[in-house]
């Protein structure tokens, strides 16, 4: 049976689409953005997270593990309850029934995010089909997926939150690890699909908030008749979760600089820019 790893179901997410929504975070992402604030969503395998505030450094987890690595036994052995698996495995049926428990309260619906939801196409489509007629369905995607997959998912989706990060391909490769060619191709498909969507751009100081990049995004939107964008300023707390995975957050940009939304660039092109 198809399953996927879910690393969070955020109830009452207020910024992931219309109305009150639950956002499902699927584990695993083809990009490796330098600013990623959900590092537990990057790897496709499950990982053990450590609550670094709770950990007393007693070593019980290492003794219970194997060859110095943490295992299921380590999680059970921690006297501070500071270890947990980053994600839980769900079948589409289990996930949908869990989401429907809040059906009466979800004035909006459900948003699938990640990680990258399009990296779990079968699972995602199964969930979207099961939710059809029950809840409004949105996906939040970086757009990096096979175009046939994207088209297929779109046919079961009511709303898309589409990320445009960097329009220059070299910069995109440098900061996210992949080319943006397929992302731009899928963006054109989205614009022609008739599915309602919103474009979102993370404002990363000195990376995505440059005049060149935001002007290019504004031009692309105008060209495609898109009149609205949501800008998500980088927050310095983003690196907080890396330590819990035993990783070090090393952003390739200066975190201390406040991002610049350059709202005039959008205004000039007749695009309503909302800073979240």
């Amino acid at each position: 049976m198809k399953t996927a790893l879910v690393f969070a179901i955020e109830e009452f997410s207020v910024y992931d689409g219309p109305g009150i929504r639950s956002t499902v975070f699927l584990k695993g992402c083809p990009l490796l953005c330098s600013w990623c604030h959900n590092p537990e969503g990057q790897a496709f395998h499950n990982e053990i997270c450590k609550n670094t505030n709770g950990c007393r450094g007693c070593g019980a987890c290492v003794r219970a593990g194997e060859n110095g690595a943490l295992t299921e036994n380590s999680v059970a052995a921690c006297p501070a309850h500071a270890l947990r698996w980053a994600a839980s495995s769900f079948t589409p049926e289990e996930l949908v029934s869990q989401l429907l428990k809040n059906r009466d309260l979800l004035t909006g619906g459900v948003t699938f995010s990640g990680g990258e939801p399009l990296s779990h196409p079968e699972f995602l489509q199964d969930c979207l089909q099961r939710l059809c007629g029950h809840l409004h369905r949105a996906i939040q995607t970086c757009g990096y997926a096979d175009s046939d997959v994207f088209r297929a998912v779109l046919s079961h989706t009511d709303y898309v939150l589409y990320d445009l990060k960097l329009l220059e391909d070299a910069a995109h490769r440098h900061f996210t690890g992949v080319s943006n060619a397929v992302i731009l191709e899928n963006f054109r498909i989205l614009c022609q699909s008739g599915v309602p969507f919103v474009v979102r751009t993370p404002l990363i100081p000195g990376v995505t908030d440059t005049e060149q990049n935001l002007a290019a995004i504004a031009a692309l939107l105008k060209e495609n008749g898109v009149d609205r964008i949501e800008l998500l300023p980088y927050h310095t707390a983003a690196g907080g979760k890396y330590a819990s995975l035993g990783r070090v957050f090393q952003p390739a940009f200066d975190e201390s600089v406040a991002p610049n939304p350059r709202l005039e660039l959008f205004k000039k092109n007749g695009i309503a820019a909302v800073v979240l």
């Binding site: 179901i9 955020e10 109830e11 009452f12 009150i20 639950s22 309850h81 428990k101 809040n102 309260l105 979800l106």
Partner: peptide
């Protein structure tokens, strides 16, 4: 205080 709560929708219910 030791409960990990899913969120306000579950909590209210």
């Amino acid at each position: 205080l030791v409960a990990r709560v899913n969120g306000p929708l579950s909590c209210i219910q």
